[in-house]
Design a binder for these strands. Structure first.
Lengths: 76, 76
DNA sequence: GCCCATTTGTACGTATGTATG
DNA sequence: GCATACATACGTACAAATGGG
């Protein structure tokens, strides 16, 4: 899924994939841990962190220290 | 200047120091390179990158690929 | 109250890519 | 072509918060 050679940075691609799933309702509740996502998508922990930062800015996820990262349910 | 043991993260401290200098007019034009700043303040390249990201969000600096990072002059 | 596992947060260093001059 | 500088990506280590036993 992730293409390191694409013009779009890895962290942007990852944010789009995960963000798309959340918007499509395919992903809800708690996400896999950041390190687990790194393994799952074959990218580094730092890239996952960067992607999550984008998703937080977009209001699609909320991270809680010590608990995890959660998909924000749609308003309605 | 930077205290790694302070409750405030290193990258926040650095952003405050540099941002404060810009606001005070002590810093203008092109900043030292990110790697030079890392050496100057005794922090890692990543921490400088993170601090710069905060300053860009605050509109205090503007980075140009291949040229450098510049203090944004006050509006008036 | 205390340990322990899990998870996010911070910090570090390095390598490679890309744009500018 | 080369040097400089920002951008991306990787991996690692430790700190801090949470929750369960």
């Amino acid at each position: 899924m992730i293409n390191p050679d694409a013009p779009e940075p890895v962290y942007v691609q990852l944010a789009e994939i995960i963000g798309g799933k959340i918007k499509a309702g395919e992903l809800a509740g708690r996400l896999a841990s950041e390190r687990a996502l790194a393994v799952e998508y074959g990218v580094s922990y730092g890239s996952v962190r960067h992607a999550m930062e984008l998703l937080r800015e977009q209001g699609l996820v909320r991270s809680v220290h010590g608990r995890g990262t959660f998909a924000v349910p749609p308003v309605a």
